[in-house]
Design a protein around this nucleic acid. Sequence first.
DNA 1: TCGCTGACAGTTTTT
DNA 2: CTGTCAGCGA
Length: 953
Amino acid sequence: MINLDSFSESQQEAITTQDKHLRIIACAGSGKTTTVAGKVAYLLDPVNGFGIKPKNIIAFTYTEKAAGELKNKILNNVGQYRGMANMYIGTIHGWCLKSLQENEYKYQSFSVLDDIKLKLFVDKYYDVIGMKEVTKLSNPSVSLRRFIDTSLFVRIMDIVRESEVRNGVHFPSNILKAKRQYKETLISKRYFDFSMIMEKALECLEDDTNLTKSIKDDLKYLIVDEYQDVNPLQEKLINRLQEISNCKLVVVGDDDQNIYQWRGSNNKYIINFENKFDKGDVKTIPLSVNFRSSEGVTKLSETLISNNLKRIPDKKMESSKKQIFERGNDILYNRYEDVDAENDGIARYIDDIIGVKFKENDDEEPRGIAFSDIAILLRTWNKAGSIVEALERHNIPYITAGVNQLFEMDEVQAALGIFYYLYGDINSGELKEKWLNIPHTKVSADKIDFAISKLSEKNPNIKKVKDNWEYSLQDIFWNFLGDAEVYEENFINNTSKDIELRSKERAEIVFFNLGKFSQVINDFETINFNSTSPSFHLFSFLSFITYVAKDYYPEGWLNNPYKTPNAVQIMTIHQSKGLEFPCVIVPGLNQNYLPSKKRGGLSEWHFLDRNLIEEQSRYEGDEDKEDERRLLYVALTRSQKYLLLTQAPDLNNKLYKKESLFIQELTNAKINSFPVMITDLKHKFPDSDKIEQKPKEKIKNISLDFTSLKDIFDCPYRFKLISVFGFCYPLNQRMGVGKSFHNCLMEIHKEAKKGVLLSADELKSLIDRQTHFPYLTKSKQLTQPLLDKVKNNVEEYYTDNLDEFKNIEFVEQEIQYKIDRNILVVGRIDLIKKIGESGYYETTIVEFKSDEDNADAPITKDQLKLYALGHRELTGETANYIMTYVIGKNRPKTPEKLYDNDLEEIQQKIKDAVALIRDEKFVKTDVSKICSENCYQIRLCSNRIKYNLKPKR
DNA sequence: TCGCTGACAGTTTTT
DNA sequence: CTGTCAGCGA
């Protein structure tokens, strides 16, 4: 199955060593992911006789993106191996959440708060969440302030839980009290934050729980990628998993690339890994050949990093010399008069290098370097602005996380105006003007007037609104856009072909920013929907925007996750980790920038005693600048061949005048003429050697769940609005009915599968536990009917289906299905039933819908067919029937026979859908029936005009 | 060349 | 709040 010949000797050793704990020290560009994927395939391969199944392996990665890449490579290696959905590949957090929810039913109804929502939550519950307890060390009468110090509080809570307490000391009582109140408040509202997921999972593993048992039985190999970035809590969890299961631990990483120490990660775990085990049980395999970079790049990087003392001794990095190093040409260090000249020099360099011949591999035909082959790597974002200006002067296309502040954009100001108007801060004329001021808009003044007039129905002071506490800002936003006919096409002004293209992009940016604003509303309402009267809800939202949101939303980024345009990429060094580029530019090599100045100002350490935390200094940066040196090391090793380092004194900032001390270290390289210093701006690359630029084809991995597929099947343009632009649906009080049903049934089925029959009381407490309506407002008249509805229907389901429970084969079975090399469809099947005797039986895949869903829609059949594909991947068998069960009506539909060509059909349908995404053909479905019946997005779609539809309100 | 003083400026981000 | 640096006096 797997061909070892394609791997280097040390890679082969890493792959085939299976009887020891393994530390793989993988230098930059050493083919780390490929090797790990090879290792997994090797372990699974029946030929090798290890008897390892997918469920015996867990692989932790640092990000979901990395997980996707690893998963993809593994799947491409193992071929037709079955049951791959049972192997966990993902983040530690992801695993913890999944395991918690599978192990303890009560956590099923919990959700995880991200950064922004967490801060909103903390601000909302300021009085009880423990923030007031945290006081200044120098002056205990000063405590953390609401809104202003929220980030500090969250950071302190993270440090307190994720770091290690120094031996012999413990936290003062106020911190402990704060921690307890913080956790209790989150739990009481059924929320986790990221640390708590890990804490709870660890607690779970410390007892003799089902989770502990399943780990003990199943886990044989635990792979941890990017091990240098593990923090103390994660290390504890990893150790615990190993201890319970006695599995082999495989850690992969590079201590020189630890750049997240300020987030608590600790290099010592990878450095001291071998000490954890007996000598004969553990092995270190260095992957020291860098297949990415030329010898020039590797030597230069090595010279730099050798100045670090706290690292694994005797480390080497050798270039595979796949890229030829051309001395004096590839690696440049340019110094300029001032920053303007520096930025201009960078732009001219880019102009110059475009079209230079480049080969990924020796045996390839060369292509011309394209814009997308070039990355500008920054230490801080504040450098981006002036570089972008220079690139614009030179007409060089670029993509960046965003230079403009979200709330400075005209369209966002206009959107915000809707709410200022409702609150009475601006008048209708001012609101109208804001909308008509958006550049290139074709939205008509009359329609704006109409939309404004409609807003009067939502005035929070009129009686109808005042008495109804369900007041959705999101809904107001969508309806305004609909009434005003704010469609994407209304921002495209096509006069000439060239302008048309740009104008299309501009229209997309407008919509992207509006989508981002929709997410701002969503973040706010997720936390604050159920608390206040309409007028106070509006007031709080505007306060949030004015005082808080600016800091919480640093920028709106326009990054299409599904394609990489041919443009220079501007990003931070941190973000560039794991990436590679033929050409890397590192500007601003000044003291205080790279290495950056230590941070002053009010910090968490004014509230939390430094002496309590083991190795506290890593949070703040070390004296020897080792952290910053690693950062430059990461930047340099992103380059395959071309590297431009620049420096110039900044006339406007006295801190950035002196050259970085790292330049000295680079110059001290023993190799002659490293680096080559020039200050002239002449052409470096002769035009005669250049050919046409040709971007490298970067096919991104796509992982799709049924929700996104459903959007594409129904209407690709809806997919664009939701998944590309990011518009969010309004929240409402009834939300949670479907999920409550689903969770109840899950617990019932899981218990039934174990053979447990529930008493009436047990069923009642089950329903209690699983019923959750996160957005119910204070007006209580809805609460009881909703609770009754879930209760009655679930109880009825239980009694009606007692006989069926013996046939349950799988509950909540995860599936994945690989469509082609880069597309993975994932999902979870509610229920699979198996009826009959051995040798002759029939399987039925069941999907539950509540009566509010459109259970009869053909799309539901597609969903079931897709699950059947996943089921076949898992078991090798094709299910016989598919069936929908409508809970509200408590009546199953008759199972439908499933045919082989059903599976082929759905497979083709998915392929077609993915092709639409890849080619960005987000066409509007041209069927008025679909548009009118179930499309909320019709408000933002020109089909509304075409079919003259009035959206339901 | 050393020490003092005042003015100035002010990260990185995933789960 | 605090690291950094230019300017100043000795």
